[in-house]
Design a protein around this nucleic acid. Structure first.
Lengths: 328, 328
DNA sequence: ACAGGGTGTTAGAGCGCTCTAACGATCGTT
DNA sequence: AACGATCGTTAGAGCGCTCTAACACCCTGT
């Protein structure tokens, strides 16, 4: 920095002002400083900058599982807004709750202005204790805790979209393969399914098969459904992977999708878009979720808001070729 | 830190030594310092630490595409080694070459000790200029440049494995849907296919259909293959996604896999493992690639090596149910 | 010609840590 | 008992930046 200042014939402080985009610098000085900096290959040191400045322009993002492209799209949304606002992101990868906590610690050592946690495994109490006073937004898991905001998908609404779509096609016996007891949003989806079925007067036909979030869970659930006598005409699966598992078993039993059984997934993952699968599914606007999460975090960082908020994003239904009217 | 020192009745410098895991601290002092630190919720400031110390223990990782789970597994490998060696990772997400360069800049502002670039889009010349003297390892793209090491998959070997497997089953007319002209490794795979076919005396039967790396590319290539009269008895696709596209078209034409046509993919992606797909495919040991990349970077950081190296990882074949002997 | 309000620039004191060099204490050795 | 060697500890000078407060400078209006 000293060198740049000398090269441009100005003081160190002015160089600093230029790199902070201060409006109080004349165009001529700015241009000269930038030119000399470029020529000398000078690049500000984020460490020193972070140390000296009180307001960090860095936000930490903890991704639960890098393997799940679901999170990638949320990160896209966060990035889009961060880029626009001049914030830098520090990405961390959890993967197992023990590691998650240590990665959280690492991010915190960089003193971020705030934290976005994508579906964290760690209990919110532990997180709250770790982060101290740093603002936190949790995405994908409802957390009721002062000082933590939340962005979640309206799972019940998503389930209702699926059920109503199937009912509209004429299905009455619609089964649900649930995401199990622990999966994020699984319970809410199952509950939403139940509510929607009753609201349509199909409460008597409702049937929840316990499952999980893996393909194998779908396979096992489907096997159980087919073993139980007359199969339903439609199945709403807890997510796309489960739906694919169900689809495989139906195929093995000579049941066509959607000819014999209609199938709806959840997540609108890349898998659902595969030509061979082409699954009707509930789409969560992930990009929007990411943007909202960061926007929400910034409100708190700027001290514009103090009470915790819970944003519930409304999902949409993507109709593909795995659903049709039931066989007459 | 001052407070911790006071609380433990020692000097600031000793607290620093404790947090740097120095062996020159008595167990008694260490225990007391750690206890007081924990009690006060003290956490070292990575900024200040990075500023003051010359040898950063931070490594930057630039991920080309967060949506591609392929990279996630490489990151897993990097993380495993980094954790073991006490290095922290700074993850960045490219996504489009313009953004990639700016993200690279952001990471560099944190003055990492080294950089791992996963399949960067940016030309190596530009990268070299940006990073200055920071050691770099490029994964997934062969780069010949002093100061940059490379970890790549042995694409030619992978292609040979696929072809030999099919030939061993009795196939002779084996077509290849290539990954196009621009895709990473596409040309090497196509060349490897050609070499393997000739080596097996099947040079006359070799047939490369131009494609790409998307499902749609597979669909189009398959359509072209089927339009050209007698179809081959086996198809080796540039990657799994392409294979799935091919599979869909074969299915549409009433051709069974592997009954009528055997199919081999490349990457051993999650898609290949889907029950319904169950694709024979070439597996790149991604975890190992990540570990090797970091190990290689550390050699250079430590100054143990100066000349550039190129590590070529040997892939393996994962046989599933998309390949079988041709119909007699 | 001079006050008054910008505008553009600067000196200098930290930010929280690491690291060098040096120190006092304890030990085994002669 | 005196000696150097080793161990545990400490003071104090930076690391490269930001930021406050003050300062020079150039207008404009009277």
């Amino acid at each position: 920095m000293e060198d740049v200042a000398r090269g441009a014939g100005v003081s160190r402080a002015l160089v600093s002002l230029v790199f902070r985009d201060s409006p109080r610098v004349s165009d001529r000085s700015r241009a000269r400083v930038l030119q000399v900096a470029d020529q000398l290959g000078y690049r500000p040191n984020a460490m020193a900058r972070g140390l000296a400045s009180r307001h960090g322009r860095t936000v930490g993002v903890l991704i639960n599982d890098l393997h799940n492209p679901f999170f990638a799209e949320i990160v896209d949304g966060i990035e889009a807004l961060a880029d626009a606002l001049g914030f830098r992101l520090l990405l961390g990868h959890g993967g197992g709750s023990a590691r998650e906590l240590s990665v959280l610690g690492t991010i915190l050592e960089f003193r971020p202005a705030g934290l976005v946690l994508l579906s964290p495994d760690t209990p919110s109490g532990v997180i709250a204790q770790q982060v101290g006073g740093v603002p936190v937004v949790v995405v994908g898991r409802p957390v009721r805790r002062p000082g933590m905001d939340t962005v979640v998908n309206d799972e019940a609404h998503g389930a209702r979209l699926a059920v109503e779509h199937l009912a509209q096609l004429g299905h009455r016996r619609i089964a649900h393969v649930s995401g199990g007891a622990r999966g994020a949003g699984a319970k809410q989806r199952a509950r939403g399914y139940g509510v929607a079925m009753r609201a349509l007067g199909l409460g008597a036909d409702a049937c929840v098969v316990p499952g999980g979030f893996t393909e194998q869970d779908g396979v096992e659930a489907a096997a159980r459904i087919l073993a139980d006598g007359e199969p339903p005409t439609a199945i709403f699966a807890a997510n796309d992977l489960v739906a694919v598992g169900v689809m495989a078993v139906l195929d093995d039993h000579g049941l066509a999708v959607p000819g014999d059984v209609s199938l709806v997934g959840y997540d609108n993952s890349a898998l659902a878009r595969v030509r061979h699968v082409d699954l009707t599914t509930v789409n969560q606007p992930r990009h929007e979720m990411g943007q909202l999460a960061l926007a929400c975090l910034l409100e708190r960082i700027r001290g514009e808001r103090d009470r915790a908020v819970l944003h519930r994003i409304t999902p949409t239904l993507v109709v593909r070729s795995s659903t049709a009217a039931p066989r007459a």
